[in-house]
Structures are given as C-alpha cells and as structure tokens.
C-alpha cells in the first residue's frame, strides 16, 4: 500500500515538475509587452464588458448532479460485488438485482417527474 502511495506521489511530482519547468522556460523565452487592452477580457473584440461573467447562473443539471452521487455510490457497491460474483452465485445476483431495481425505479420516477428534461 505504502509503495503504491509513493508511486502515485512520484508521478504527481513528475507531472508538476514538467509543468513548472515548461512554464519557467516560457518565462525566459517570451517577449513581454503588456498593454491594458492585452490583459483585458476577450469579448469577441468588443471593448466593453457588457456583464459580469461571475453571476448566479442557472445550473439546469443540478438534479443530474444529485442523481450522479446516488449512482456513483451504487457503482462503488457494485464493484466489490462484481469481483466476488463468481463465488457467490444466484443469491447474490438476486440481492443485487433488488438493489439495482430500487435505484432504477428511482431513475424512472425522476424520469416520469420530468426531472431529466432540460427545460
């Protein structure tokens, strides 16, 4: 386990080093010539920013996000079940089917309620 964590951190470190190194080289090579216009927001060429982009935007997939969490949890349950499925046999299948069915019914309910529609 500890070896795996070391491997993971070394990989992350190598990736980070590459990023920092490349950006450093760029810093050395680039010709910096900044003006106010260059640093301003790209708005298809328009100079005036007509509204603030950081507003309370409507997230129409909020409910989808909730569904994602539910199904992600289901998925985490399914993985260990799938690994040992061969040795457990029919009973495990039926148990898991009941579990999936409940979630599927939930999905169907959400579908019928019109939550899955992008209005």
């Amino acid at each position: 386990m500890i070896s795996e964590i070391i491997y993971f951190s070394v990989f992350v470190a190598v990736g980070l080093t590459v990023v920092v190194l490349m950006l450093g080289i760029q810093k050395l090579l680039q010709t910096k010539r900044h003006s106010d216009a260059k640093l301003s927001v790209y708005e298809c060429g328009n100079i005036d920013v007509v509204s603030d982009p950081r507003i309370q935007i409507k997230m129409r997939y909020y409910i989808f996000g909730l569904l994602l969490i539910i199904f992600d949890v289901e998925m985490i349950f399914l993985f260990p079940w799938a690994v040992v499925f061969k040795s457990l046999g029919l009973v495990a299948l039926i148990e898991m089917l009941v579990f999936i069915m409940i979630l599927l019914l939930g999905l169907l309910y959400a579908w019928r309620k019109g939550v899955l529609k992008w209005t």
Binding site: Y61, F64, L68, M75, L78, F79, A82, V83, F85
Partner: peptide, 21 residues
C-alpha cells in the same frame, strides 16, 4: 455528470467475468 455513471457501470460486466478489478 451524465457520462461518469454509464462509463463505470459498463465495465462491471467485465469485472464479473474476470472476477477481478
């Protein structure tokens, strides 16, 4: 949000067949 779940669920069958992740 939409494709994480189908992608992960679609490989469960493989885990069942191989008996390992």
């Amino acid at each position: 949000v939409s494709y994480e779940v189908p992608r992960a669920l679609s490989v469960i069958g493989i885990v069942m067949l191989a008996g390992s992740a």
